[in-house]
């Protein structure tokens, strides 16, 4: 009786570990497809993931930092350079931003990033907005960042 339960227990453990890896993979694939989990890629290697929650949290951090320096930040929006910096991307030639569906693709050099922010949407995705260009939405739902050296 106890041996049968031990076998069931070991099978359950295998299922738990396998299920956890499967869950993570499915979440990653589905999130990347619907723009809810955005990979940040450098040298063909995904180095971080961003989502609307991270953007909100980063916006708070940037706002606190700017307030400390005497400036002011905006709600739920973080500058693209700050978001990329937090993902560990500081040295790059340009960043390619891809949007959901057939939306435009943008290639931005470091000097062109002034005024470009990421703003969280209500559906769990986030958009790229040009603040200096009259709050123009450049990419409605971002799906990928690619940093080229």
């Amino acid at each position: 009786m106890i041996n049968r339960r031990i076998v069931i227990g070991i099978l359950l453990l295998t299922l738990v570990i396998g299920g956890a890896f499967l869950f993570e993979k499915v979440t990653r694939v589905q999130g990347s497809q619907n723009g809810k989990l955005v990979p940040v890629v450098q040298n063909d290697k995904t180095i971080a993931y961003l989502d609307a929650g991270v953007i909100r949290q980063l916006s708070c951090e940037e706002r606190e930092l700017k307030q400390g320096q005497g400036g002011s930040g905006s709600d739920n929006a973080v500058s693209l350079s700050f978001a990329l910096g937090s993902a560990g991307i500081v040295d790059y030639e340009y960043v390619e931003v891809t949007g959901l569906g057939d939306s435009e693709e943008f290639k931005l050099k470091q000097e062109e990033m002034e005024g470009i922010t990421l703003s969280s949407n209500s559906n769990g995705t986030f958009s790229m907005v040009n603040k200096s260009g009259g709050n123009r939405v450049m990419v409605k739902e971002v799906t990928r960042f690619y940093a080229a050296d």
Partner: peptide, 10 residues
Amino acid sequence: PMVFLAMGFG
């Protein structure tokens, strides 16, 4: 944020 919870879950 969900990304911290889902990533590395396995």
